[in-house]
Simulated assay, not measured.
Amino acid sequence: MSNSGPVGVFDSGVGGLSVLAELRRALPDEHFLYLGDTAHVPIGARSDEEIRDLTDRAVTALHARGAKAVVVACNTASAFSLSHLRSRFEMPIIGLVPAVKPAVQATRSGTIGVLATPGTLRGTLLADVIGQFAVAAGVRVLQAVSRDLVPLVEAGLADSLEARAVLREVLTPLAEAGADQLVLGCTHYPFLAGSIRAEFGETFTLVDSSAAVARHTRDVLTREGLLGPPGAHGEVTYLFTGDVDAARRVVATLTAPDMHNGQHLPTAAGGVSWPTPEPLRIEPVRT
């Protein structure tokens, strides 16, 4: 397989942009194809079989456009589809694992929270990592779930009174129970970090897996001899299955510097450092 192709990144919508930001920091010379299946978001309410089918169709579309590897930047899709995808494609398929391990290692209260989608909670991956890392360490895990947060981020309303009201409702029980780490179990949720801070201050340390996935992707590309040539200026082409104009507006919002105090949108690592603003190459795609 050639090392000149792009790295594919798939999410059910725009949440995977938080992973893409970390990938671009770790791999500045790589070109990326980002595919957001906005025609079917959110996928967590769909059946297991439909989640696998939608993910397969998206990865097939990225492969057809020359992707040399694909990052499944969606917790729900990862939970239901990784084994299937790896049996279908020879290229590296990299998925997400909820960042329970670092939260367990960092907690001082002995209680951590996980904010997840219904689909991620339904899968076995989260339960497996809780059992492997939290239960073994004697750390209590409290779970919070909402069907409303992903649609709010998809609508460009991550920093809104509506988002803050939902977060206040679902996270207050975790704060009152003493959770000091909050695992963001969906790639949409790092974009809610500002709203979480506005409601809860420094109650939680926010933890997500984006930076770890980016490091792992770099390691995989290096091991497989797929790193792109050095010195290139990596570019991104965005593909969306739904309304391209609506996607353009949301992508521009989520990839631009935060309008509050001129800072970038915060994530668990302390901030998303996007490259210099560039024209958005956004195309419709069928999967």
Rank of each mutant, 00 (worst) to 15 (best):
A99G: 04
P118Q: 15
T76R: 05
K101T: 04
G95K: 14
L96R: 09
A64C: 03
M91F: 10
A77Y: 13
G113M: 00
G110P: 08
V71I: 12
F80W: 06
T120V: 04
V100I: 15
V72L: 03
T120D: 05
A67L: 05
V70M: 07
G113P: 01
I112N: 04
K101I: 05
R65A: 07
N75D: 12
A103W: 08
I94F: 03
V114D: 00
G119S: 11
I112M: 00
G123A: 06
L125N: 00
L121D: 10
S87Q: 15
P92K: 06
R86I: 02
F80Y: 13
L85E: 09
V100W: 07
V71G: 10
C74L: 05
V114T: 00
T117W: 12
Q105P: 04
L115K: 07
S109W: 08
R86T: 05
V104Y: 08
L121F: 14
L82G: 02
N75C: 12
G66R: 11
N75L: 11
K101D: 03
G66A: 10
T117P: 15
S78V: 03
G113E: 00
R65V: 02
S81W: 01
G95S: 14
L85D: 10
A79T: 15
N75K: 12
G110M: 02
